[in-house]
Design a protein around this nucleic acid. Structure first.
Lengths: 209, 209
DNA sequence: AGTTCAGTGATGCGT
DNA sequence: ACGCATCGCTGAACT
C-alpha cells in the first residue's frame, strides 16, 4: 500500500467503483486514467468531455494489490487494474490558466457606462452587486424620483430563471417600500423567457459585448 | 493541412488561443492535449479537474504548420506546438458509461410511494414531470378536493432557486384556476431558502435517500 | 433547432 | 468551513 503523490497518465484495462454523494460502477474496459499532483483524478472513456468518474483537487491516492484507491471527504473511487497498457509521468506540467475576456463582469461595466441610454431614464446612481437577503442584484440603478431599476445581466442567452431572479429581487425592494422596475439585459433571450417577462411586466433590453 | 479523425494524447510545450462565446489565451507552457474520436478536445494544465481549454463532441480538427485548429459551431481553438514531448494513440478505447444510483429520479419514486404520509393528505393521483409552459413540475399530487400540491425535489441541499421554481409553477396553476400548495422536498435546505419559503407560504419537507 | 433541468456538477468569492 | 452565483458549464430529454 503506497501513497501516490505525483502526476501520471495510465491507459489501462480497468474497472471502477465509486461511492459518495451518488454511487456508480463502470464495467471493465480500456480507460484513460489521469492523476494530477493536486489530487485531481479523472477516468476518461472514448467519448465526451466529461470524465466517466472523477475526483476534484484534494483527493488522496494509494496503490496496492492492483488497485488504486482515491478518497476525498466522504467519497471513494476504487480502480482495479486488470492490464496496464501505457504509462507516462509528465514533467514540468504547467500551472498557467488562460486569460479570459468577454465575461459577465465586463458586460456589467459596459452597461453601467451606457445606463441612461439603455433605461431611457435620468439615473443618479448605479450600484453593482447590491446585496439583498434574496441574493445580490447585478445592477441597481436609481433615478431622480427614487425609482429602483433592478437589472439582471446575462452574458449569454437569458432563460426563465433569469426572470424569476429579477422578480425575487423586486419582491424584496417592494417589501421595503421602494418603487421598482425590472430588467433582464443580455445579448439574446429565449422565447419562453420573453413571454414570461411580458406576462409579469418585466423588461428586456438587448446588449452586446 | 491534414484533417485529424483519430484519438490521441499529446504532452507538449504549446500555447493556445480560444475564441467563441468568450475569448482566452493561454501562455506557452507544458500541457496535456487529449483528443477523442468524437471530436472532444481537452487541454489540461497541472491542476484542477476542468480543462484549461476544451471543445465538446462534434469539433473538427486539422493539423498543419505546427498548429492544431479545432472548430465547432462558432468556436475555434488554435494550439501552437512549440515542442512535442510525448505522443500516444489509445487503441480500443472503451465507450462504456457508469451505471448510476441515488439520482433525483429515484428519490422522486421514493417520495411517490410515501406521498400521503409526507403531505399529510389523502392523495388521489401523483403525476411525475407534469408539463407546464413554465417548465415541468417534478411531482404534482392532487387530493380529493382538487387541491394541487406542487412538489420540487432536490437530491442535495435546496437553495432559493428551488423555491422560485415552485412559485413559478404555482403561478401557472393559479392562472388556470387551480387551488395550490407548494413544497420543496430535499435532504437539506439553505437558511435563506427556508426563510424565503416561510415568507411565501411555501413548505419544506425533509426526505432521505 | 430550441429550451428546459440535472449534475458526484466544478470553481471562485464572500461570510 | 458553509453559502451562493457563475460557467465558453456539459449532457440529456423533450418539443
Amino acid at each position: 500500500m503506497i501513497e501516490i503523490k505525483h502526476a501520471f497518465l495510465l491507459y489501462a484495462r480497468a474497472s471502477i467503483e465509486y461511492a459518495g454523494r451518488a454511487k456508480s460502477s463502470l464495467e471493465e474496459g480500456n480507460y484513460l486514467i489521469i492523476r494530477k499532483n493536486d489530487g485531481t483524478l479523472m477516468i476518461h472513456g472514448a467519448s465526451l468531455l466529461t470524465a466517466r468518474n472523477y475526483q476534484p483537487a484534494g483527493a488522496r491516492m494509494t496503490f496496492g494489490n492492483n488497485q488504486f484507491i482515491s478518497i476525498r471527504k466522504n467519497e471513494k473511487i476504487i480502480i482495479t487494474i486488470h492490464e496496464s497498457i501505457h504509462y507516462y509521468e509528465p514533467q514540468d506540467w504547467s500551472i498557467c490558466r488562460p486569460q479570459m475576456s468577454m465575461t459577465e463582469r465586463q458586460l456589467c461595466k459596459q452597461i453601467t457606462i451606457k445606463i441612461e441610454e439603455l433605461l431611457e431614464d435620468k439615473i443618479l446612481q448605479v450600484i453593482p452587486e447590491y446585496m439583498t437577503p434574496y441574493g445580490p442584484i447585478d445592477l441597481l440603478a436609481i433615478n431622480s424620483e427614487n425609482l429602483h431599476h433592478v437589472i439582471e445581466v446575462k452574458r449569454g442567452r437569458a432563460a426563465i430563471s433569469s426572470c424569476t431572479q429579477v422578480k425575487r429581487y423586486m419582491q424584496y425592494l417592494q417589501e421595503i417600500n421602494k418603487k421598482v422596475k425590472g430588467w433582464v439585459m443580455s445579448p439574446a433571450i429565449s422565447s419562453k423567457a420573453l413571454n414570461y417577462l411580458n406576462k409579469n411586466s418585466l423588461h428586456w433590453k438587448q446588449v452586446h459585448h
